[in-house]
């Protein structure tokens, strides 16, 4: 459609390439041709349940607009039954806000996540401090339904909204020395009460890392939201990592720094208990945690008379996508 306009067209009014391409895909799918295409569909995001009176997190305007353009690539939609919204936003491990699963929901509601900046540093050609908006804007948001397996042997199925990590990292042009990526969470004891605890054993800020080939794997994802809206603070707003083939603690929340390094970063849990947590933390039913078995998991929500216990799969069921990354590694040693 042509719009008559006398004023010069502002850059912000020009429809981006990714968006008009999506529209083409949308038209094709509307014509019933989508099935013949391996490409992505513009589909309605997993919407929030109407009857649920849990809090909603619409997020900043710019993100809302971008969410409306989201796509849902077929290959990233787990077929498992979704964990209900209210459980996803009220049952969290976010130790900065407390140790109980209900603490983050109780204590993070006033956590300030807008404005937000992300610092890019290390072995890249384009280091700098980026506003979240500029960080996310160049990408088309995607919805991905991933299984999430916590190291504590419970799991959920979550519809994330976000951007492929590889696309983001490539933008900053990593050099040949960039062998690992180190992520850091915000350090702000005023807002994150547990960071001020005298009896904690974790070093703040929380640090996680990936090998560059892991980070560039198509599964690796930077999430900006869940259930078609922005990220609730207790889930790691405004930006968190999602690497579904690894235990949940690798999915670092509320990221403020991304550093490209030559050496393997020291991730927080590994520093605290090296015997129990490694750098890789790939989901592996064959290697138990020293204190409990990893052979099975309880899929949440569990009801009282069915523990909902299921077998844990190697790489959380994503072996086909990622097993090749660890071909010559002894995964008993590299936990």
């Amino acid at each position: 459609m042509l719009i008559k306009q006398k004023d010069p067209i502002l850059p912000s009014e020009i429809t981006g390439e990714s968006i008009y391409k999506q529209r083409r895909v949308f038209m094709q799918s509307a014509l019933g041709l989508a099935g013949t295409l391996a490409a992505s569909n513009v589909a309605a995001l997993s919407s929030l349940p109407q009857e649920d009176d849990s809090p909603k997190y619409p997020g900043p305007k710019w993100l809302q607009q971008q969410q409306q353009q989201s796509i849902s690539p077929d290959q990233f939609q787990a077929k498992d039954k979704l964990t209900p919204y209210k459980d996803v936003i009220s049952y969290n491990n976010f130790y900065e806000f407390g140790l109980d699963k209900s603490d983050p929901f109780k204590r993070a509601q006033n956590f300030i996540t807008d404005p937000w900046q992300v610092e890019i540093s290390g072995e890249v050609n384009k280091p700098g401090v980026y506003n979240l908006e500029d960080f996310v804007k160049p990408h088309t948001l995607q919805e991905r339904i991933y299984r999430m397996r916590c190291v504590e042997a419970w799991s959920m199925v979550i519809p994330w909204v976000g951007i492929p990590l590889a696309d983001v990292l490539k933008r900053f042009e990593p050099t040949s020395k960039a062998k690992y990526i180190e992520f850091t969470t915000l350090h702000d004891p005023q807002q994150m009460p547990q960071q001020g605890s005298l009896f904690g054993t974790l070093d703040w800020p929380y640090v996680e890392g990936l090998r560059i080939d892991e980070a560039m794997n198509p599964l690796a994802f930077l999430a900006t939201g869940v259930y078609g809206q922005s990220m609730p603070p207790q889930n790691g707003a405004p930006l968190r990592l999602v690497v579904p083939w690894k235990y949940g603690f690798k999915n670092i929340k509320s990221i403020v720094k991304i550093r490209f390094t030559e050496h393997m970063p020291k991730n927080t849990w590994h520093k605290t208990a090296p015997r129990e947590y490694g750098f890789y933390a790939n989901v592996n039913p064959a290697v138990d945690h020293p204190r409990w078995s990893q052979a099975t998991e309880r899929r949440l929500p569990s009801s009282l008379f069915s523990p909902n216990r299921i077998e844990t799969l190697p790489f959380n069921g994503y072996a086909e996508e990622v097993a090749h990354l660890y071909k010559n590694m002894d995964l008993r040693k590299w936990i």
Binding site: S90, Y91, L300, L304
Partner: peptide, 8 residues
Amino acid sequence: GADPAKEI
């Protein structure tokens, strides 16, 4: 919550 078993 989501994990009543553990709470109990």
